[in-house]
């Protein structure tokens, strides 16, 4: 299988891993957002808590979630390795730096990625860790014959803390910038560049990178201001 290892250690192979894991994480963003927007439903957290129970107990989803963790780690570790290798390939930097030839985001993907990763740690520590190992109150709903964790309540208290809200907003801005370059870049790495379709992909990328983080941002802002 030397051809496989050859490929995976080649520059294009390494970038392919970034591209595929990136696209996978992009698809996760959509699913995660769809679920989380239930926080805005005015039902005292019922639909959100039931959804959260489903997501943590369905065996199929649980399997997928391991894939997700792996995807995040692979994207992050590979990203760091690539950034280190690229840094050493460049050697020294120019005395005069210019923003004239490439966007800020494209030149700072590793930095943005690190910010996003830091945000993820806060985010998961706040909810996922507490849900798995901490004490989250149980709550029962009519028509459901089992108790579920009241994660909604946890969200409510977290987003009353302005520091948490700011951290989320910073994380989401980093995500927006990361996506702004990453979305179309993933397609370019896959070799999907076409005179007719590429402008469409790029347009989609911009819309996605702006709308999705805004939609995410609505949640902490809404909770902070109105709950």
């Amino acid at each position: 299988m030397s051809w496989v290892s050859n490929f995976l250690t080649s520059s294009i192979g390494k970038k392919l891993i970034m591209s595929l894991t990136g696209l996978f994480l992009i698809s996760f963003l959509v699913v995660h957002l769809a679920g989380n927007l239930q926080l805005l439903a005015n039902d005292g957290g019922k639909s959100f808590n039931v959804y959260a129970y489903f997501m943590t107990h369905n065996p199929f989803i649980k399997t997928i979630s391991f894939g997700l963790y792996a995807g995040i780690l692979l994207h992050a570790i590979q990203g760091i390795l690539i950034a280190l290798k690229n840094r050493s390939a460049k050697g020294s930097r120019y005395a005069v730096s210019t923003g004239a030839n490439a966007s800020f985001a494209s030149k700072n993907m590793a930095l943005l990625g690190t910010l996003i990763f830091a945000f993820l740690l806060i985010h998961m520590g706040d909810f996922w860790f507490k849900m798995k190992f901490g004490a989250v109150d149980m709550v029962a709903y009519d028509g459901i014959d089992y108790k579920v964790q009241d994660l909604y309540d946890k969200v409510l208290t977290s987003f009353k803390n302005p520091l948490v809200v700011v951290a989320y907003l910073v994380g989401l801005i980093a995500l927006a910038l990361h996506l702004l370059h990453g979305f179309q870049s993933a397609f370019q790495t896959l070799g999907l560049n076409h005179k007719k379709y590429t402008p469409f992909i790029k347009g989609m990328g911009v819309i996605f990178s702006i709308l999705v983080p805004i939609a995410y941002a609505i949640i902490p802002i809404y909770f902070f201001l109105f709950k």
């Binding site: 970038k15 690229n86 390939a89 030839n101 179309q184 999907l192």
Partner: peptide, 26 residues
């Protein structure tokens, strides 16, 4: 180094060669 699709190359290329070629090679 590895390509991170910044596009700086095609901006500075004196012959204005496009990064479409990079996608084609990938």
């Amino acid at each position: 180094g590895m390509c991170s699709n910044t596009g700086a190359c095609e901006v500075e290329c004196p012959k204005e060669i496009s990064i479409t070629n990079i996608a084609r090679m990938n």
